[in-house]
Nucleic acid binder design. Structure first.
Lengths: 131, 131
DNA sequence: CCGCACTAGTTGCACACTCAATATAACCCC
DNA sequence: GGGGTTATATTGAGTGTGCAACTAGTGCGG
């Protein structure tokens, strides 16, 4: 039982740690990106789109593919993409081969903004995670 | 520069890891506690109150002391305590020695609910963190 | 070919969160 | 001791999120 309670305590400590690091990093990223009109999740989606472009040369990416990589509900992601589109950072278009799906593609503006703010996000990561 | 880019990539990977573990654990805890009318943050506050009771024998705790331990804004915490009070789990009273502050004390119901759901939260932690 | 189950994405709704402003109380220094 | 500053907690406004319901499209089996 003693073992059990100490292992439980370790788990708790670890969880507290995760909570703390998560909160501080999130906050730091938001602070760095907010002046550019982006939140942490917005950047994450932009980042995924860029890396996806590099990976398979395609300019577009299904919403589904983004959803797999980001920890957001379908609806939150849908609205997030809606906001990015409204800001002219991405474009949506129906996927012809499966008309249930929609393609999401970066615009020039989106790509530019990403290259602009990427260093800021990385710096924020470094500040908190290397502390 | 090569060093720089790989260390950056490590940072990114670590961040992705934190994000993933955080999301899954949060979700698991919420799922376990929701049937009892609590969210993860609610439980965390209850847990803090219990441990504070054990620590210095006092039955009450300043809002400030809770705020130091939980990653929420002042206003979010105030409303959270308001909800707990509405549900009869805690009681608020003005702090006599410093009348700016307010005491927060567990009710019997709050203590009971905590002992009831604590194992569930621990189990959720174990499920995700030991995976 | 039609129906039926399944998948992809969006929308309505409720709710918790943050930021900024506010109220009240305490501290402090002249 | 009174006026300015700081500390503590609450409230108002705006926003993002998750759940559940919904629409549209696919594909399989009879």
């Amino acid at each position: 039982m003693a073992v059990n309670t100490t292992s439980e305590a370790r788990l708790e400590d670890r969880w507290r740690d995760i909570l703390s690091v998560h909160a501080r990093t999130m906050c730091e990223i938001d602070r760095a990106l907010h002046p550019h009109g982006l939140g942490a999740s917005d950047f994450e989606v932009l980042d995924i789109l860029v890396s996806s472009e590099l990976a398979h040369e395609g300019e577009h990416c299904r919403v589904q593919n983004i959803a797999d990589r980001v920890h957001l509900s379908q609806s939150a992601l849908s609205r997030l993409i809606g906001r990015l589109e409204k800001d002219g950072l991405v474009e949506r278009s129906v996927c012809l081969e499966d008309r249930r799906g929609v393609w999401v593609a970066l615009t020039r503006k989106g790509r530019d903004l990403h290259t602009e703010v990427r260093p800021l996000q990385r710096a924020a990561l470094a500040r908190v995670l290397n502390a």
